[in-house]
Amino acid sequence: MIGVFIDIIVPVFILIGLGVVLHRIFQFDLYTLAKVNIYFIVPGFIFIKLYETAFSLALFLSVLSFFSIQILLLYGISSLVSRLFGYSRSVRASFTNSILFYNSGNYGVPVNDLVFKHDPFAMSIQVIILTFQNILTFSWGIFALKTVEGNKLSAVLGYFKMPVLYAMVFGIGLNLLNVDVPNFVLIPANYIADAMVALALVTLGAQVAQLRFARNLSVVYVSLILRLLLGPAIGIGIIYSLGIDGVTAQALLISSAMPTAVNSAIIAQEYENEPELSAQIVLASTVFSMVTVTIVISLSRMLF
């Protein structure tokens, strides 16, 4: 377990730490960083990974089944908890997003790469999860935040302004149609994709650097329990129920243990819905995930 922590978790947190240091020195504009991530880095990464990943229908359906059941269960539980604790509509939206949207990209991708030692099959599983997560985040996640103001039509139309949607459509479409994308497009797309992990983790570090724990700590604690503990526990149950095993089972379980996504804080800041609370949850879940993700990685190797 110590080896897992040093070889897999520490490299991720070195980049987060650099983001903290750089922000304190240069005072980054977090709003601009959020725009760069949403409108530039994430779409480029999604496009290139989906275009280059070899898809198997059986694998795709297996991952889709796992993801769908997991999200439905987590949504039901988070909604029930929100009502039991009497959270306001704005807090309820950010709280639910913090449970449903986990860091499958700028945390999950490097962890998968390190755990499975650059195995393209394992990475294809993570890319599919990342795709589903982005579809969910930039559709339901934004819809939930904007409907707090009651503007449902604007929430729906707002999704079609997100370039990640078109990146996913083009990535999958060109892949399935076996279209050869010219090098003058692939080269810059690969540069963008290569920048995602470092820039996203540095962005997370910059967010961490400006956070202050001031209120709603009880919401943060409940979110931690559901995301970091209940998330992988539900994942294990679904994996056994669906009869998934081997590398697929390991990759899905590890993915389900990821902390709350940076994107949940980014869209909360973008749409001004409890941005401080969302950022606090991202910070706390990311810090505590150093322990929980290490345990889940070790557990995945024992169980599957």
Rank of each mutant, 00 (worst) to 15 (best):
residue 155 A to I: 00
residue 177 L to E: 01
residue 58 A to H: 09
residue 66 F to D: 07
residue 55 F to E: 00
residue 178 N to V: 08
residue 118 H to Y: 12
residue 178 N to I: 07
residue 89 R to N: 10
residue 186 L to A: 12
residue 172 I to R: 06
residue 136 L to M: 14
residue 108 G to Y: 05
residue 179 V to H: 02
residue 85 F to Y: 06
residue 123 M to I: 11
residue 64 L to C: 03
residue 138 F to V: 08
residue 168 M to N: 11
residue 94 S to M: 09
residue 147 T to K: 15
residue 151 N to Y: 01
residue 137 T to R: 05
residue 168 M to G: 04
residue 115 V to D: 00
residue 63 V to Y: 01
residue 93 A to C: 13
residue 111 V to I: 13
residue 93 A to R: 12
residue 55 F to V: 04
residue 177 L to R: 04
residue 74 L to G: 03
residue 162 M to E: 05
residue 127 V to Y: 12
residue 97 N to G: 13
residue 100 L to A: 06
residue 182 P to I: 10
residue 115 V to S: 01
residue 118 H to T: 13
residue 116 F to Q: 05
residue 77 I to N: 04
residue 161 K to G: 15
residue 114 L to S: 14
residue 66 F to H: 01
residue 77 I to F: 14
residue 124 S to E: 01
residue 148 V to Y: 15
residue 86 G to T: 12
residue 153 L to M: 06
residue 111 V to G: 01
residue 148 V to S: 13
residue 85 F to G: 00
residue 117 K to A: 13
residue 107 Y to H: 04
residue 150 G to P: 11
residue 125 I to V: 15
residue 185 V to I: 15
residue 129 I to M: 15
residue 142 I to K: 04
residue 119 D to Y: 05
residue 146 K to C: 08
residue 94 S to V: 14
residue 124 S to C: 05
residue 138 F to Q: 11
residue 158 G to T: 15
residue 116 F to W: 07
residue 110 P to C: 14
residue 160 F to A: 04
residue 182 P to R: 05
residue 114 L to K: 14
residue 64 L to I: 08
residue 135 I to T: 07
residue 93 A to M: 12
residue 115 V to I: 07
residue 102 Y to D: 09
residue 180 D to F: 10
residue 148 V to R: 15
residue 111 V to C: 01
residue 92 R to H: 10
residue 114 L to Y: 13
residue 63 V to M: 02
residue 92 R to E: 14
residue 129 I to T: 12
residue 87 Y to M: 13
residue 81 V to R: 08
residue 73 L to R: 05
residue 104 S to P: 02
residue 132 F to L: 08
residue 172 I to C: 03
residue 99 I to P: 03
residue 162 M to R: 01
residue 158 G to V: 09
residue 55 F to C: 02
residue 75 Y to I: 13
residue 107 Y to P: 00
residue 156 V to Q: 02
residue 181 V to Y: 02
residue 61 L to Y: 12
residue 116 F to E: 02
residue 74 L to E: 08
residue 120 P to E: 12
residue 112 N to S: 09
residue 167 A to C: 12
residue 60 F to I: 09
residue 170 F to S: 11
residue 180 D to E: 15
residue 145 L to E: 01
residue 142 I to F: 01
residue 61 L to F: 15
residue 148 V to G: 11
residue 113 D to M: 15
residue 155 A to D: 00
residue 150 G to C: 10
residue 161 K to L: 12
residue 118 H to K: 14
residue 154 S to F: 02
residue 109 V to K: 01
residue 78 S to G: 10
residue 61 L to A: 11
residue 155 A to W: 00
residue 121 F to L: 10
residue 179 V to T: 11
residue 56 S to H: 10
residue 118 H to N: 14
residue 86 G to M: 12
residue 160 F to M: 03
residue 76 G to H: 07
residue 79 S to H: 03
residue 124 S to F: 04
residue 78 S to H: 09
residue 177 L to W: 02
residue 111 V to K: 05
residue 156 V to G: 06
residue 96 T to Y: 03
